[in-house]
């Protein structure tokens, strides 16, 4: 379904509300929704409510709307363990590892608030220790490469580039 505002991107947010027997449907893509409400979805996990509230507050009361938005988000369900977002919010507990993929976008801001970070840098499991260490090393090297290029230190940059290539082709850590 296309976004009813820009008519080009596909709609990501769908709201249906019945007011005095009249059915009203709203379908928007994420960027139009953000533009119309003036709220950045990525900044706040609960902004979805506010976001939608901003868009349709003319037609329905905010309380009514919040209830509906709550219902919509609350029934979002992890396909692996069947835990709903509502259950997670209530108990504070996720049902399985897949919940991280399914609800990740919603709770990422909360996660950042709790830990002031979103990247694990500690102990790694034995089975993929090498693999993750290589990934971490490549990320670090790429950042270093950018700095070296910016500083016009091309000789060292070439060495770093070669190391990245070696690691990405399956080479091992020195």
């Amino acid at each position: 379904m296309k976004c009813q505002q820009c008519q080009s991107r596909s709609a990501a947010l769908h709201v249906t509300k019945t007011i005095n027997g009249m059915r009203k449907e709203i379908h928007l893509c994420e960027s139009c929704a953000m533009e119309m409400s003036g709220i950045n979805v990525k900044e706040n996990d609960f902004s979805l409510y506010k976001l939608l509230a901003g868009i349709i507050k003319d037609s329905i009361s905010e309380d009514d709307f919040m209830e509906q938005a709550d219902d919509m988000v609350a029934t979002d369900t992890c396909s692996v363990c069947q835990t709903t977002y509502g259950q997670f919010v209530k108990s504070g507990k996720l049902g399985c590892a897949s919940c991280y993929g399914h609800f990740g976008k919603r709770f990422m801001p909360s996660l950042k608030r709790i830990h002031t970070a979103t990247e694990h840098v500690g102990k790694l499991p034995r089975r993929n220790r090498n693999e993750v260490q290589i990934k971490r090393r490549v990320t670090d090297l790429k950042a270093l490469l950018m700095r070296l290029v910016a500083a016009e230190e091309y000789e060292r940059a070439t060495q770093v580039r070669d190391e990245i290539r070696m690691l990405e082709r399956g080479g091992d850590l020195a």
Partner: peptide
């Protein structure tokens, strides 16, 4: 324990736990 158990782990988030307050390490 890990030598015979496969723990839930995510490249970015680390060890996955039921509560977000424990994730990572």
């Amino acid at each position: 324990l890990e030598s015979t158990l496969d723990f839930a782990f995510h490249d970015q988030l680390g060890y996955l736990t039921s509560c977000l307050t424990n994730v990572g390490t």
